[in-house]
Design a protein around this nucleic acid. Structure first.
Lengths: 216, 216
DNA sequence: AATAATTTGACCAAGGTGGTCATCGGTGCT
DNA sequence: AGCACCGATGACCACCTTGGTCAAATTATT
């Protein structure tokens, strides 16, 4: 086995484990592997230095664990995709909501995986590159599988349209993330989120879809 | 005067000065003020430590100089905006090209100013916050001044449409920046850039504009 | 009360930090 | 050639942070 985690980390209760994971992710995404400080991580996670190195035998081990944990989260996101939904907007809408829920629990997972690709520390690079590429390839394959492209206007450059859609979702997602913590009720936020997104979606559908498919 | 730069930095030839400025910007944007290493900067700029501290009396001085230099570049970008062009797409297109030219010369200025806002080092924070907000406020004011909004569809949420446009431009700009150095001829790149952007613009115009204004 | 399991933080050697300054090398003048 | 000038250099400094350790303290279990 490549990564060996001492069993005592699993014995921790969920809250504390997530606190540590999030503290580590935050520090790694902010500073990269080399410059990430274990001192900062333990401070943020409110545990002692000794404990961290009891749970993980080295900084590298911690990184690898947190990385693989993040990968798992994405994988689970993929599993949830409903392949019977053939409308691109509806499918992406659903994924977007799931992402929001994940970001509520793990605020920097997506940033972490995005940043991990350009991690230049030789110590962790190989572990990353082999996985991340595969993950993203699988992701885009699943996400766009069985989509009904016949709804799109004939003279539309669909690839570019999808790029626009992605950039818009990303921008909107960022904006929403900034507001996420002003809501105490996550269900209420989800509702608000969906309602606002629909307006953006409608604008794009107007251009992407044939007339008869514009309104859902 | 708040920032006093020893005159010998001005005496340097343009190439070297830009090399130093870019090296500093790169390091600051990658690591923030506190963690930015002057050792890394001198290595990247191919000058000695002594020289750097001959040109600037401290790391803070260097930061402030580079920051104000970046602000100037943005200001100049604003000056160039042609206010007689009332078509939003045409105006943004023009700004986009200018930005590309700037990014060729100073690859990280925009990232630097974007990152500077969330700089948490108390030492430089106050210098930043007072300026950046003003800059962006002035920017959006100029950019959207005298735009002919009558071209837009009546039932369109113009504010949201402009957000989509911005996110799309940002996404496309990033994509283009990644390709910018594969072109040796900047003029050729500009042409290619414009041609590709037009396709994206056309997709959005289809949704934003009334029928009669779609094709330029 | 006794034992086992966890957590703690002072401590370490190693390495990096911003900044200094005696020395160097080149250029131009006499 | 000899001299004076000046920008460039990098070894050097005191200080700080680093990843990781471990004896001692605390808590949990018997």
């Amino acid at each position: 086995m490549v990564t060996e985690i001492k069993s005592n980390f699993y014995k921790l209760n969920d809250d504390k484990r997530e606190l540590i994971i999030n503290a580590a992710i935050k520090e790694f995404v902010q500073n990269g592997f080399d410059k990430a400080s274990t001192n900062e991580i333990v401070k943020e996670a409110q545990i002692s230095k000794g404990s961290l190195f009891n749970y993980f035998k080295s900084k590298k081990d911690l990184y690898v664990y947190v990385f693989e944990y993040s990968v798992q989260i994405i994988e689970q996101l993929y599993e949830q995709i409903d392949l019977t939904e053939t409308d691109l907007f509806k499918r992406l809408e659903h994924i977007g909501i799931q992402k929001m829920y994940i970001q509520k629990k793990y605020p920097h997972v997506f940033d972490f995986l995005a940043q991990s690709v350009q991690e230049d520390s030789a110590e962790v690079k190989e572990i990353i590159n082999s996985k991340v590429d595969a993950i993203y390839a699988r992701g885009t394959k699943i996400i766009y599988q069985d989509i009904d492209y016949s709804k799109f206007r004939e003279d539309l450059d669909i690839e570019k349209a999808i790029e626009i859609l992605n950039w818009t979702m990303f921008g909107f997602g960022e904006k929403a993330t900034r507001q996420i913590n002003t809501f105490e009720d996550m269900a209420e936020f989800g509702e608000q989120y969906l309602k606002e997104w629909e307006i953006y979606a409608e604008i794009l559908k107007y251009s992407f879809y044939k007339n008869e498919f514009r309104v859902n």
